[in-house]
Amino acid sequence: MFYARAEVLPMPPPPFTSLLLLACADGVEDSAPVVLPEETGTLPADSPAPWTWGDSGTGTVTESPEHTLYVIQEGSWTLSPPGGPYTDLVGTLSVDEYVDELPESEEDTGVLPSCSVRYALTGVVAAQPCDNCRFTFAVQHTVTSGDPALCYDPELPPDHAAWSLGLDEDYRGSEDWILRDWGDAGLWLPWYTATFEDDTVRLSWSVAVGVAVEEEEEE
């Protein structure tokens, strides 16, 4: 059977507790009903107990890292046309992360990185240059090996990311820095230290921070 849309919904069957009350009605002494205050929905209950500020920062705290993460990022841009004004760039960026131990030299193959990513870079002049930059490029990052998602640094460019990067030669005490337009929000943050010479920019950034890693089970 089909029903037309009704304005008034049918009443649901009374719950079992209602049945009990109805059944007992005749056995209750007649008396004036107690009038309770009207319900006010889901309003909060009184909470007279005074709340006290918690003594934060006193719980279990890791006071020194058990493991150290070394993040090393290096790259270069080759600008063209030679001598400028520059309109394009090509380059590379390498990212290596090591836990607890760094290789002693480039030939040291005994220490493997926990994460290694290589990017190919291409760039054209950015539409929105940074104010104090000598030049600003929209740099396309293409992963040629590795996976940025496997690295600890949460600020690595994902594959195919286009970042606005500019060279500021007078940043914080006349240092050369590559600045990044963070999130394309117009906020230029220092991203790589840089040197600029002969149409080439060399950039690098490294840091050592703590890291929590799964301990290997001893056999």
Binding site: V61, T62, E63, D153, P154, G210, A212, V213
Partner: peptide
């Protein structure tokens, strides 16, 4: 304070990635 990549310990019920610090200093 000591800065960490991700949470300061693996038992932390925080999200993935990010940075943290944990210390008394």
């Amino acid at each position: 304070p000591d800065v960490y990549a991700g949470a300061p310990d693996l038992d932390s019920e925080v999200g993935d990635g990010g940075y943290s610090w944990s210390d008394r200093c």
